[in-house]
């Protein structure tokens, strides 16, 4: 078990190194640092200005091999953008934003709070509602209720999230005047007013696919032998579904949870941006609009880091949920 976890972490670390290399290729080799500099200081600036900008950011070094150093000196391969990129990211020294020189790590710390305030309740309520609805639906499997629910899920899945957001803002913000359309205030007594609408929209958006997925899982479980045994013993349908089926369906549910975890931290891009919540999603969107590659790079890296961590945690949690699984 310990050996497995160590190997798993080692592979996860390798994956993160791979992600960093991918980001390097994308943001230094494919996009020329000259272009980034020109976008940051303006097209018309004289060459000295953006050379200076590049030097300040440390973007003026060569990509892989620094020919200023001799053949045998160490600097030939270490004094390069590639090595700088890896050391900066792996030591979490993200540096300054390309757009306005603000510290990226400070921005991330500020944005994490609002993001979590939106995504954690959204995630928990989404899970709870989806599992309850799909348990209910699979309780009535092969009936009209089941078929109606599946049709509704299919309809809900075919609508783009843009429409849910626009529709939700229109209906609840403008027609019913329940919640504000957008905005944010960290004051704990009124913050819920700003979060309810985005949470509701996010919930509806994810529900269709989730209910369908969980229903498949539950219905598949109900065909198994132990369910028949439980029924033969005289256990009621509610006890069978709630006690036996739900517990055995935990593994696929666990996978779903972990897939969602990185998004809890990186925030929901669209929801945050549409509803004016100053979280990490908004940070990413601003980085896209402002050609702020340093921030974008950092966000992708953090997202990948969290994803890899989450995957390792799922593998470990499998053994806790299902004693039949032995990790080797």
């Amino acid at each position: 078990m310990v050996a497995y976890i160590i190997r798993r972490i080692g592979y996860g670390f390798l994956t993160v190194l791979g992600v960093l290399f991918f980001l390097f290729i994308l943001f230094f080799a494919v996009t020329d640092p000259d272009d980034i500099a020109r976008k940051a200081v303006g097209e018309r600036a004289p060459p000295e200005v953006y050379e200076q900008w590049k030097r300040n950011k440390g973007y003026d070094k060569p990509l892989f091999v620094n020919t200023e150093h001799g053949w045998l000196s160490g600097g030939r391969y270490t004094d390069t953008l590639l090595v700088d990129h890896y050391t900066r990211m792996l030591t979490f020294q993200f540096g300054q934003s390309d757009a306005d020189d603000a510290l990226i790590s400070k921005r991330i710390r500020e944005g994490a709070g609002p993001s979590l305030m939106l995504t954690v309740p959204l995630f928990l309520s989404g899970m709870a509602v989806a599992v309850m609805v799909s348990l209910f639906v699979s309780f009535f499997r092969e009936t009209y209720i089941d078929r109606m629910a599946l049709v509704l899920c299919m309809l809900a899945m075919s609508v783009t999230i843009l429409l849910y957001i626009i529709g939700g803002q229109y209906l609840i913000g403008k027609v019913l005047h329940w919640f504000p359309i957008s905005g944010f205030d960290p004051d704990p007594t009124i913050v819920y007013k700003f979060l309810l609408l985005p949470i509701l929209v996010g919930l509806v958006n994810g529900l269709g696919a989730d209910v369908r997925f969980y229903r498949t899982v539950f219905v598949e479980e109900t065909t198994k032998d132990y369910v028949r045994t439980a029924r033969a013993k005289g256990a009621g349908e509610i006890r069978v579904m709630g006690n036996h089926v739900l517990r055995n369906a935990l593994i696929p549910i666990l996978t779903q949870i972990v897939v969602a975890i990185p998004f809890l931290f990186t925030g929901s891009l669209l929801l945050e941006s549409f509803f004016g919540i100053p979280g990490l999603g908004s940070l990413t969107i601003d980085a896209i609009f402002g050609n702020d590659f340093a921030t974008l790079r950092t966000m992708v890296y953090i997202g990948a880091l969290l994803f890899v961590t989450g995957q390792i945690l799922t593998d470990i949690s499998y053994t806790l949920a299902d004693p039949r699984i032995r990790l080797e």
Partner: peptide, 23 residues
């Protein structure tokens, strides 16, 4: 498998955005 797990480690929408801003 390594390339696949690397790409899969990046949250989808972020990967899309990073690719399009770079390309």
């Amino acid at each position: 498998f390594f390339v696949m797990s690397t790409l899969a480690a990046i949250p989808g929408i972020l990967l899309l955005i990073a690719l399009i801003t770079a390309l």
